[in-house]
Design a protein around this nucleic acid. Structure first.
Length: 727
DNA sequence: CGTGGGCGGATTTTT
DNA sequence: TCCGCCCACG
């Protein structure tokens, strides 16, 4: 058998990890060290050399994208379709198990999946129905509490209130929320995982079956697993099993959503015989970038320890730019992008990374006026758009009449005279009967319990749904979707809307029909159910328009797993990155540092770090110090880029607005005062040293704004300030 | 029943 | 500053 496709692309460490004898294993894989390659080649190795059946392999990831890539690479390697392999996300696999074993899991056969927004609505409804004040019981916090408990594997019964009335209320809400979900036959994301765990835990024959089947459980990005994911994996693999775990503790950036890096140590305790491999050779970045990243992450305590190296050259130094303000920061990046393009580079080579989404706006404005195409990642995804969710809600009602969230969403959309009052009465009735809204509505129509008009309207709605269901039954999926859009009046509704917005919505709805047309259901589910699950589990990344050559903009979190020749990490100021809310907490600070490490290791050839002395955020100005992460980098690897001085001499500092309005050159009149340009260092007799942030006015009227290191920011009359220019 | 204005809040995100 | 949400009004 020719094993060279599997083995020849591997270095020694990778090959050792791929060819190790079957047994529990932990692969510590640094950024850019070929983690996915090891995982996929291991699977190929298991099948081709160890004689494992594709049937016996379960590979788990966190994102659909990662799962898709892995499947594609395995298929390429083995040259066979990988249909027999179970490759998917934790949620996707949990869903698959629950569909197969809905009865044992205690779910209705046609259960539906709530996404984050549905869940929030559901909790809001619950709070309202109990007459609770939403400013006291904040829906988001209730959701957070519920999800957090589920992530920890805890049901309401298992929770103690510790005599804390607030906590008692939260637990009660969790309990009531569960009942509401059960009544509606819906499960949220966290519930998928918890149920899948309980399914195995409480059904010995099911567990036995899957343990016997999945002899090879492989987990990617293991440092991101939460408690329930770990418990599920442990149960499935069994203590005598051979889980194959790939992880990088230095890239653990999701502690805040329940991920536990400690699972790595737990894994070593639960499988003490597990072999440990380290992948430290990096194929992505230059030596300088790696050295800097290593130096940064070395400031974290309690790491498993890992040092990335490369056989390539040092490359260019890391460049640091201290901008006057956020606009100057954007202008600097713009200029560097132009340079890059002039040297024949492509825009898609470049990524702008930032800590929080709000930072993208300034860059967008700068790029718009500089006519640089860009793409911002992380907005609303296709299946999350309101109009798409409306349409999906109709489809979900067709699949499951008891889905209350969907019922509420569309019962009066487009408006058909079923107002808040009737709906309120329905809710009360449903709660009293312990039934779904649909059943309560049917009963209310039969008994004429509501007013005449409302009853007629409601009866119309019920008939509409039943008629749609009947008409849709013989159709293929995309025709069903099309039918629902027309019959429900949704398309018509949006056509009547104000031009621009309505048009976009109609287009999105038409896109939904195409999505249904292109959808290939796999498995035994009816196509409609499969499509709905797909819509909930895959938010629809990667729609049209992907391939224009664009500058890539995203948060540092989103950038994990990606790589770019040129990376800008922007907004490197204490308070922004590391974020304000992590400054006072060591664990939080370490996670921010890992986030910075993740960002730096995205860069292949060039890495820029920028920060702004002055930043306008949330409408008010703040004055930041450079991020502590910058000072944690070795000085000899970092080259500070000085603000360029136009025409080769200090120019009259224009007002900030004039300076930054694109296309309008700063008018180079007489220098206000020598050395008083923006960004210059100055000394004041009383206030000490500082940086010039802004200059306004001319001659004797001129005022200057300086950020003094000790005294903060002040406006001074230039004529009287007696500032001394430093170097 | 739909919209506009006032108010408060404003990391990070996948599924 | 800006966005989303709630309520009051037309």
């Amino acid at each position: 058998m020719d094993l060279s496709p599997i083995l020849s692309p591997l270095n020694d460490a990778q090959r050792a990890a791929v060819t190790a004898p079957v047994g529990p294993m932990l692969v510590l894989a640094g950024a850019g060290s070929g983690k996915t390659r090891v995982l996929t080649h291991r699977i190929a190795w298991l099948i081709q050399v160890e004689g494992a059946s594709p049937h016996s392999i379960l590979a788990v990831t966190f994102t659909n994208k990662a799962a898709g890539e892995m499947r594609a690479r395995i298929e390429g390697l083995l040259g066979i379709p990988g249909a027999a392999l179970w490759v998917g996300t934790f949620h996707g696999i949990a869903h698959r198990l629950l569909r197969l074993h809905w009865r044992e899991a205690g779910l209705p056969q046609g259960f539906q999946i709530l996404d984050a927004e549905d869940q929030l609505r559901m909790v809001r409804k619950l709070l309202r129905s109990q007459g609770l004040d939403e400013s006291r019981w904040i829906p988001r916090e209730v959701v957070w509490f519920i999800n957090h408990q589920k992530d920890e594997g805890l049901r309401p019964k298992a929770l103690k209130d510790g005599n804390d009335p607030t906590r008692r209320q939260f637990i009660r809400l969790y309990h009531d929320y569960e009942e509401a979900c059960a009544r509606a036959g819906v499960v949220d994301f966290a519930e998928l995982l918890l149920r899948a765990f309980e399914l195995l835990r409480d059904n010995p024959e099911v567990l036995r079956h899957y343990r016997a089947r999945f002899r090879h459980v492989l987990v990617d990005e293991f440092q991101d697993t939460n408690a329930i994911q770990y418990a599920w994996m442990k149960l499935l693999a069994g203590s005598d099993g051979a889980p194959y775990i790939v992880a990088d503790d230095d890239q653990s950036i999701y502690r805040w959503r329940g991920a536990r890096v400690e699972n790595l140590q737990q894994f070593q305790r639960d499988w003490p015989q597990a072999q440990l491999f380290r992948l430290e050779q990096n194929y992505r970045s230059t030596g300088n970038i790696l050295q800097a990243a290593n130096a940064l992450i070395a400031h974290n305590a309690g790491r498993l320890g890992k040092n990335l190296w490369t056989s390539g050259g040092h490359g260019e130094p890391i460049r640091l730019y201290a901008a006057f303000n956020e606009r100057d920061e954007a202008d600097f990046v713009t200029q560097r992008i132009r340079d890059h393009m002039q040297q024949g580079g492509e825009r898609r080579d470049i990524a702008i990374l930032y800590r929080s989404n709000a930072q993208s706006r300034v860059f967008e404005e700068a790029f718009l006026s500089a006519r640089i195409p860009y793409k911002v990642y992380g907005g609303l995804r296709f299946f999350e758009r309101a109009e798409v969710k409306d349409a999906l809600a109709y489809l979900r009602l067709l699949a499951n009449r008891d889905d209350d969230a969907s019922f509420e969403r569309v019962v009066n959309l487009p408006t058909r005279g079923i107002g808040a009052k009737s709906l309120g009465e329905l809710r009360v009735a449903a709660r009293e009967q312990g039934s779904s809204l649909w059943r309560a509505a049917t009963a209310a129509v039969a008994s004429q319990a509501l007013g005449g008009r409302a009853t007629a309207a409601l009866a119309g709605f019920l008939q509409l749904i039943e008629r749609m269901a009947a008409d849709a039954a013989p159709l293929v999926l995309h025709e069903q979707v099309d039918l629902v859009l027309t019959a429900s009046g949704l398309i018509e509704h949006h056509r009547r809307e104000k031009a621009e917005r309505g048009e976009a919505r109609v287009e999105n709805l038409e896109e939904l029909v195409s999505a249904a047309r292109g959808f290939e259901p796999e498995g035994e589910l009816p196509p409609l159910d499969a499509f709905l699950a797909h819509a909930a589990l895959e938010s629809g990344e990667g729609q049209a328009g992907e391939w224009e050559d664009c500058v890539q903009m995203m948060t540092l979190h989103t950038a994990k797993g990606l790589e770019f020749p040129v990376v800008f990490i922007c907004g490197m100021e204490d308070g922004l990155f590391p974020h304000q809310r992590s400054l006072n907490d060591l664990d939080g600070l370490e996670e921010e540092r890992r986030l910075c490490y993740v960002g730096m290791t995205r860069a292949m050839r060039q890495l820029y770090l920028t920060y702004a002395e002055q930043r306008r955020l949330h409408g008010s100005d703040s004055y930041g110090q450079a991020s502590r992460f910058i000072t944690e980098l070795p000085e000899d690897l970092v080259e500070e880029v000085r603000p360029r001085i136009r025409l080769g001499r200090p120019y009259a500092a224009p007002t900030a607005a004039a300076h930054h309005r694109p296309g309008r050159r700063a008018v180079a009149s007489e220098p206000v005062a020598p050395g008083m340009r923006l960004g210059a260092r100055v000394r004041h007799g009383k206030f000490g040293e500082g940086t010039v942030l802004n200059v306004e006015g001319q001659g004797p009227q001129a005022r200057i704004q300086v950020n003094f290191e000790r005294q903060g920011t002040k406006w001074l009359m230039l004529a009287y300030a007696n500032l001394e220019a430093l170097s």
